[in-house]
């Protein structure tokens, strides 16, 4: 059985069909790309999968469990985590606190434990802090642990966002334009970084990206959206030569020019 099964996913914003009849099966450990021109509905698909929007039609299943209709925090707890197109860290909080709050699903105390600082509270907090620090160490961000997130340089903030997404120990990681705003050198190291995460944490990664170099180099399979409809699917080589994809990106050829 596939890890994530999306069947006939359709979503309307009012009368607009933002995503139409989207199908995708992700196998455990795959690295899949989702591309398409601006406004094609890529981020909408991510929002549907993570529960930010409720799908109008269709089904999304993680290991067979239906996700449509579940609130975002439950879906997050079931093992899907994501980053955002524009950085959405909690800016005034420290980097460590950003990671700790993403552990909300693991909080094992009730209000009384918390108000009275009972052992169960202290134990749970210690566990969360230790796990958060370990993640920061793994991603070589521990020296920033006590800095407010907003003080970090852009690239580091992007990394913190990925660490935060890892805090809930997801099985599927959705990256929404991880290379946005990066220069060619940074994109190179990002590619290694994404591979490293997948191998280190045994993850399935599904990413949206406009940087073709990154997508074509690291994705094993690519899906192309345009105006909410799937126009192509296949290996990077197949996508690069697909007529419909070229049309979507560059426009149709005009006869007689």
């Amino acid at each position: 059985m596939a890890l994530l099964e999306i069947d006939n996913l359709t979503h309307y914003f009012g009368g607009l069909r933002a995503v139409g009849d989207f199908n995708l099966h992700l196998e455990e450990g795959e690295l899949v790309g989702l591309i398409g021109p601006n406004g094609a509905g890529k981020t909408t698909v991510f929002n549907l999968v993570t529960g930010a929007y409720k799908a109008s039609e269709g089904s999304i299943r993680l290991n067979g469990a239906e996700l449509v209709g579940k609130p975002p925090y439950v879906i997050n707890g079931m093992g899907i985590s994501r980053t955002f197109q524009t950085i959405r860290l909690w800016n005034s909080m420290t980097v460590l606190d950003n990671i700790k709050v993403a552990h909300h699903g693991r909080v094992k105390y009730n209000l009384l434990d918390m108000f009275l600082v009972l052992p169960r509270y202290r134990e749970s907090e210690r566990e969360i802090e230790a796990h958060a620090m370990e993640l920061l160490r793994l991603f070589k961000l521990e020296r920033h642990a006590h800095e407010p997130a907003r003080n970090l340089p852009y690239g580091e903030q992007r990394r913190v966002e990925i660490v935060r997404a890892m805090a809930s120990q997801p099985r599927l990681l959705l990256l929404d334009e991880p290379a946005a705003g990066m220069n060619p050198g940074e994109i190179g190291s990002l590619m290694e970084f994404i591979h490293w995460i997948r191998d280190e944490f045994k993850l399935t990664i599904w990413l949206i990206e406009h940087q073709m170099r990154l997508v074509m180099n690291i994705c094993e399979r690519i899906k192309v959206l345009d105006f909410g409809e799937t126009i192509a699917e296949g290996t990077p080589a197949e996508i690069q030569n697909d007529r419909k994809v070229i049309e979507a990106y560059l426009g149709e050829e005009v006869e007689g020019v």
Binding site: L89, W90, V101, H104
Partner: peptide, 16 residues
């Protein structure tokens, strides 16, 4: 505090 800073992000990162 996460709700104050970015409620949608809080929701999606597992905060009930």
């Amino acid at each position: 505090i996460a709700i104050r800073e970015d409620e949608i992000a809080a929701d999606l990162m597992g905060v009930h």
